[in-house]
Design a binder for these strands. Sequence first.
DNA 1: CCGGTCGGCTAATGGCATTAGCTTTATGGC
DNA 2: GCCATAAAGCTAATGCCATTAGCCGACCGG
Lengths: 187, 187
Amino acid sequence: MPRGTLSAEAIVDLALRIVDKGGPSALTLAAVAGSAGIVSPSLYKHVRNLAELRALVSARIVNEIADQAGEAVLGRSADEAVRALMSAWRQYVRRCPNRYAALIQSPEPHTAEAGQRLVTIMTAALRAYGMRDSAAIHAARSLRAAMHGFAVLEVEGAFGLPEDLDESYELLTDIMITGLRARQDAT
Amino acid sequence: MPRGTLSAEAIVDLALRIVDKGGPSALTLAAVAGSAGIVSPSLYKHVRNLAELRALVSARIVNEIADQAGEAVLGRSADEAVRALMSAWRQYVRRCPNRYAALIQSPEPHTAEAGQRLVTIMTAALRAYGMRDSAAIHAARSLRAAMHGFAVLEVEGAFGLPEDLDESYELLTDIMITGLRARQDAT
DNA sequence: CCGGTCGGCTAATGGCATTAGCTTTATGGC
DNA sequence: GCCATAAAGCTAATGCCATTAGCCGACCGG
């Protein structure tokens, strides 16, 4: 077997660079092959098809986010943990908007596994509010919806008005924290 | 001029039916042309290109959502208005998941205009919390992020766990209401 | 030294968007 | 009622992309 230098991992690396530069729509097999110095059909020796490459890329991105999120939450709990988590999430989005835009939310094995890490991190952070099991799941979903929604809208340029986005996100953060805490008091 | 029966409006109608049936990726000029009984190049006499068609479709969808949202909010205020708004939003998503998935959040004139309607509806609902101007904008963005995030994740099947989604959304609704009310009390 | 397999290649197909340029057809002014 | 015109259809052609089939050479273990 020739050139051992091209693994699926390496291909994902190249794919990420392409996404960073040209956005999600630039991620084509032709482009990846080109940047690897081979022709596109050769890629099929490493990756099943474009859909799988997208899934692998997404899994990598989710893992990156989970890394950031996990680090942010470390040593904090309750309000501070949620604030740090939300802040870390948005920081990732601002640092790598194209990657975030390329994220595909599929019930695909690799991505799902990485997503599981996030669920664990989030439910752990929520345990400080006295939430467990189902309650923690529902709260984690709410948190994720808020973060993801803001991220998607910001990345896609959907916030047209001139108001400062940092302020908006701070408000969203405060709302989530207040809301979660109220739940804690309620139950 | 022959066949006056095919306007941009009619094309969007056909496009929506295609999206409903096959999801966003099924929306191709070839498919639309086929369902209109013409060949694809003829479409360019009515629509600039695929991107514009997508934008027109999105504008229509945003208007549909604004209709539902506006109706839901009518005659209610504060908590009740927010609850009704969030409920209407998700009902639309559940009724037309493919349409929601096809939504493109572009800073494009038609969509932006429809989006303006939504902003108006939302800020009006938030005025009951004593929010005006910038404060209302930030709050509207937060609300939109929460609703959109949940919608996107639900539509894309990103919520893998068996927990009931209705319950999750109710929690998110409560969190938003509690958070917004706390803001009201704060200022 | 040799055979298998891995990883590259070329060729070919089919779907799609898009452009150019031709033809038909309805209609509005005469 | 007729005809010029412009709208709205068509065919042909291009180019990009994913994907499949089948070929070939190079590395590795024995």
